[in-house]
Design a binder for these strands. Sequence first.
DNA 1: AAGTGGTCTAGACCACGCG
DNA 2: GCGTGGTCTAGACCACTTT
Lengths: 236, 236
Amino acid sequence: MKTIKKYSQIQQYIKKRIQTGVYPINSYLPSENEICEKFNTTRTTVRKALDELLREGFIEKEQGKGSKVIERRKSLGLLTVKGFSGATDYKVKTKLTQAPKITDWDPIIVFGLTREEQKSKCVYFQRIRHINGKPVVLENNWYALNAMEIIKPTEFIEGSFFKTLSQKYFIEIMGAEQELRSIPATAEIAKSLELAEGEPILHISVRFRTSKPGFNLYGDLYCNTSEYPIRNTYFS
Amino acid sequence: MKTIKKYSQIQQYIKKRIQTGVYPINSYLPSENEICEKFNTTRTTVRKALDELLREGFIEKEQGKGSKVIERRKSLGLLTVKGFSGATDYKVKTKLTQAPKITDWDPIIVFGLTREEQKSKCVYFQRIRHINGKPVVLENNWYALNAMEIIKPTEFIEGSFFKTLSQKYFIEIMGAEQELRSIPATAEIAKSLELAEGEPILHISVRFRTSKPGFNLYGDLYCNTSEYPIRNTYFS
DNA sequence: AAGTGGTCTAGACCACGCG
DNA sequence: GCGTGGTCTAGACCACTTT
């Protein structure tokens, strides 16, 4: 992919303007014909760009009216840690306990890797999420180096990998598959999460699909759910 | 929409042929140009049809090769129990251990009920899912009686509540919220699932949203994940 | 009536996979 | 080299919303 595709340029241009508030939520984008003029192209190409933004959940279209900027369903399908009683007075902090580094794939990954991924080295990093000072989630992540460059710790926006992907690379999470298990904490996990060995913890294996073809993010999570359950929302 | 759109016709035609096995999984569809000829149209229209099938998860495209029929991702967003090693030789049987009956709401439901729901009595039923003869999931369900009539056990299609809703009432599941916890099995749960008290099990509280306004289905599930993890897929 | 998005035509050239 | 899908042009007409 040497030359940047035109529809992709338009898509990124508009996405940036949405993210920076130039096109606020509930406002309408310029009409397709106006965008055509601006980028000196045809409606087919502009519509392709808008279709992508639609798929990514940034806009919705209203026939006869225009393309409307909508609030991107946050944490679409993403796991969120939720205070038990709906209390909002808890603080989540994410510590990067292993900065992104290049390694081999870990056989713990339960989802089948594609051939492209198998051929590649992978990037690994680890984080621990703390709630009100207590470690609650230990999160291991991997992705294929040939699908996505290595992201430096300094690039992380608010400790969030997804936010970094979206705002710096214009990559969105499109979906996920999970496997859930309840297991007794191993000695190692127990130590990281400051609980007793054998305590029941939630093990989540997850594959996130992104809007960048071939780029998947694999996760292996251990959650102490005794105080804070994991919450999970999805809509079709 | 009086006239049926051409791309929609093509889409349905191909979808039916996939579903009936005329185009088997892993085979390739006719090329875009061939489809153009058959339907006497242009590639733009054919590609629109294929894009829809791509979005619906029926095909994937391989540049330079063709459009390949793939296994449709099952039960969008719904929980599925999956054999560990990808083995497909396991049998799931659902036993209705408590037929739908009218009761009061159970305070165990963690998601806030709407005012309409609170005013109503509710329908409760319980099922146990068995895999290869072993009980694996204990599932309690509730819904508001004023949102949906009581469904008799004899109406259940293949033991599936969702299938019944879809096929008899044309109600679809539109989304869900879940809370996940790993807990030790209580004596009661242990007995139902034939395991030792204190074994780690997965507790899922879920609210399913349906296409019928005001009709939510609440679930409280206990899963023995030691052999069969719970799998969970969602896409936007 | 004017403007918007939705569908569709009839081409063109390019990038990729394979023999 | 050939066939495949991927991108793009330059139009046309239709359906819908608003003025």
